[in-house]
Write a protein that binds this DNA or RNA. Structure first.
Length: 223
DNA sequence: TATCCTTTGAAGGAG
DNA sequence: CTCCTTCAAAGGATA
């Protein structure tokens, strides 16, 4: 179960290499380009990224294949996983906000729909900041990015962009209300609890999120 | 094995 | 008040 294997329900299940090759071959790129949902700039940016992908993706793929081979040998090392879970002392988690509730609900659907399992990519699909990979350099690992683009090729650009933000006001209000109820319940269950209680939980220090250059936080790079 | 990545939103603290 | 940071979920990737 390592890597980016496709959903077994899908009829054909190509290997990682064939997925990459499929993306990189001319036909796929042409299909990609001909999508009516892309303007010329985005098309060109995407194709440049695809070209860049080819230079450094081989190493990652070989690494994944090695991992897969290693995993085939042992099938019973999952017993000590709950051992690690026991080690953690119970802590009261933050209540989920509206977007987190939405993600929790929609994640499985997106995972089933596309071949992606990497949550960072799924979260971008469900969130908004698609500009970051549409215009600038992509933050994904090559194979993840490859599969994300495959998803776009298959389902169309509008399917990917801003799913949360494309919800109607009423639909979003549903999640905000649910989140409000969760917070209220959380307050009743754990009076006096503060989100600060979990700062640095389990670790010495969390990494600094970002050094914050507000101009570029939008992610749009001038071409 | 622990942290990173990535999203939005809540919340607390600093200035 | 405004700005900044952390953490909620999640699972593959990575050091």
């Amino acid at each position: 179960m390592v890597g980016y294997d496709r959903n077994p329900n899908v009829n054909n299940s190509p290997t990682k290499n064939s997925i990459l090759n499929n993306l990189l071959n001319k036909k796929t790129q042409n299909d990609f380009k001909s999508s009516p949902n892309f303007d010329t700039l985005i098309k060109n940016e995407m194709c440049n990224d695809i070209a860049d992908l080819k230079t450094n993706s081989d190493i990652k793929i070989n690494r994944s294949q090695v991992d897969q081979k290693n995993n085939m040998g042992d099938g019973k090392n999952n017993q000590d996983s709950n051992n690690a879970a026991d080690k953690k002392k119970p802590h009261i988690k933050k209540p989920l906000n509206a977007f987190m509730l939405y993600m929790k609900e929609m994640r499985a659907k997106v995972v089933a729909e596309c071949t992606l399992k990497e949550s960072a990519a799924i979260n971008q699909i469900l969130g908004r900041k698609t500009k970051r990979w549409r215009y600038g350099h992509h933050p994904y690992r090559p194979l993840t990015y490859c599969l994300l683009m495959m998803y776009i090729v298959r389902h169309g650009y509008n399917c990917v962009v801003a799913q949360w933000h494309s919800l109607s006001r009423e639909e979003q209000a549903k999640y905000y209300e649910k989140a409000r109820q969760e917070r209220q319940l959380h307050m009743q269950l754990y009076p006096g609890w503060s989100a600060r209680d979990n700062y640095g939980y389990g670790t010495k220090k969390k990494k600094r999120k970002k050094e914050r250059t507000p101009v570029e936080s939008g992610g749009i790079r001038a071409p």
